[in-house]
């Protein structure tokens, strides 16, 4: 098992990832690793390649070259659903909860990989299928409780405010019991108070002992949440380190925070 310098387990290892769109190098030889239980943040100016990197890790786009390992297994080039099944789940920029479902149904859908019932079981509602559904529902309601969403469990998603939809998307992602959670700009579009609230929610995720990779523009949030920061610019990794180190890194300051 791979360990980092602090002797904690490495969950994800990306090695020399390259990805180009036409002539544009969106990712240029990106190498990094994520340690278990940490909240890492991925930052960088617009167009730095953050979302592309997230897409490559979650299998929505295949890298041109390079490898990605989840724990010890190579997941490069697997399809998104296979990667989710192995333990990486993501949320989306601007949020993508199912508007036509209730809050509870969203979380139940997120638990797809933790159940087995197939077509015939669904059609005939065999007793064991009912039992599985019941257990799933109990688990889902428990998850909603943790996110203070239990009161709106049976509401259609379109009826609940944006901040709750964002929380729901995270709860739904946790339904697949991921080892690594990728959050793509979770607070985009929220006001300051809501941002703080969602930040608290993310901080509290540590009780699930899961590893988080956060893409975020809000620097206050990043500084308050992240244990580790990776900085991208023009598809290249220009720095990584603890928040304090990054804050004082001259290259990062000139690239990202502007010359001051």
């Amino acid at each position: 098992m791979n360990k980092d310098t602090n002797n904690s387990r490495i969950i994800l290892q990306a090695m020399e990832l390259d990805k180009s769109f036409g002539g544009l190098k969106a990712l240029d030889c990106i190498t990094f690793s994520l340690s278990e239980g940490r909240i890492s943040a991925l930052i960088g100016p617009n167009g730095a390649g953050k979302t592309t990197l997230l897409n490559v890790i979650s299998g929505m786009e295949a890298p041109d070259s390079g490898r990605i390992f989840l724990e010890d297994s190579d997941i490069t080039g697997l399809k998104t659903w296979e990667i989710t099944k192995r333990g990486i789940c993501r949320t989306f920029q601007s949020g993508r909860v199912f508007q036509n479902m209730t809050v509870l149904e969203n979380v139940l859908t997120g638990m797809h990989t933790s159940a087995n019932s197939g077509w015939l079981a669904g059609m005939f509602h065999w007793p064991w299928e009912r039992k599985e559904e019941k257990e799933l529902k109990t688990k889902a309601l428990g998850l909603l409780e943790l996110f203070s969403l239990a009161d709106v469990a049976y509401e259609p998603v379109s009826n609940i405010p944006l901040i709750l939809q964002r929380k729901l998307e995270i709860a739904r992602a946790l339904g697949s019991s991921p080892k690594l959670l990728l959050l793509d700009e979770p607070v985009a579009g929220l006001n300051m108070k809501e941002t703080e609230e969602l930040g608290e929610t993310i901080r509290n995720l540590s009780r699930f002992r899961i590893t988080i990779l956060l893409v975020e523009h809000d620097m206050n949030l990043v500084m308050s949440l992240a244990d580790w920061i990776i900085v991208l610019q023009h598809g290249q990794k220009i720095a990584e380190g603890k928040p304090l180190e990054i804050r004082n890194n001259p290259e990062v300051i000139s690239a990202y925070l502007g010359n001051q």
């Binding site: 998104t80 989710t84 989306f92």
Partner: peptide
Amino acid sequence: ISASALGIP
């Protein structure tokens, strides 16, 4: 896209 991200083939 969301569905596949939740592990649905």
